[in-house]
Amino acid sequence: MILVLKTIMAITWKDILSEFRSRDTLSSMMIFCLIVVIIFNFMFEPGSTNVREMVPGILWIAITFAGILGLNRSFIYEVDHGSLLGLLLCPVDHYVIYLGKMIGNFIFMLIMEIILIPLLIIFFNLNIFSILLPLSLVVFLGTLGFAAVGTLLSAISVNTRAREILLPVLLFPVVIPILLAAVKSTTILINGGTLSDTISWIKILSGFDIVFLVLSSLLFEFVVED
């Protein structure tokens, strides 16, 4: 078990180190988030009362599309430079490779969100400090489910000619339950609700996270099989 964990961490460490040297993925995700926040900011008059109703949608649009930018790149280097074969030749179960890549994608999305949420607070003049913890839980669970299924579908789409287009086409229908639960619970929290008001949505989020993680781990073997 410890060996499996070490191997998973080795893959995640490799992806993070590689990304911090190139900054290819994170920079494009950040720029996309900034553009989304600025464009939506132009929609509202200063002090508009509609802001609180729109912010959950803006937050999850930014997370979803910036997340796809990151997921798209997740396997491109591995496939284009043949290093996916190198990973598959290692004496580890293939689900270990999936989990290592998934955790890497999840961390990149979390880093992007740590910058995105303060941007939303500043640009939309939000006072959400009292709900920061429950909001973080919702964002954490939503991102986990998104990264879980997105990593698997990224491994499928990377071997096709239209890989950048195929990933969102495959991903969006599958993650609808995750996005629905995440947007609904974010809306409740931003409009004055508490954690207990969102508990049913959080249960749905957690349930789908577990299902997506287990299924994706099991299916990855067949995705990378020759």
Binding site: K6, T7, S18, R21, H81, S83, G86, L89, C90
Partner: peptide, 23 residues
């Protein structure tokens, strides 16, 4: 004919990664 190496990692980091993969 492909190296299976990662361009953004150093030579030692590449081998460290594979050494960990092999336990």
């Amino acid at each position: 004919h492909q190296s299976f190496l990662y361009g953004n990692l150093s030579a030692e980091e590449n081998l460290t990664f594979y050494a960990r993969m092999y336990g």
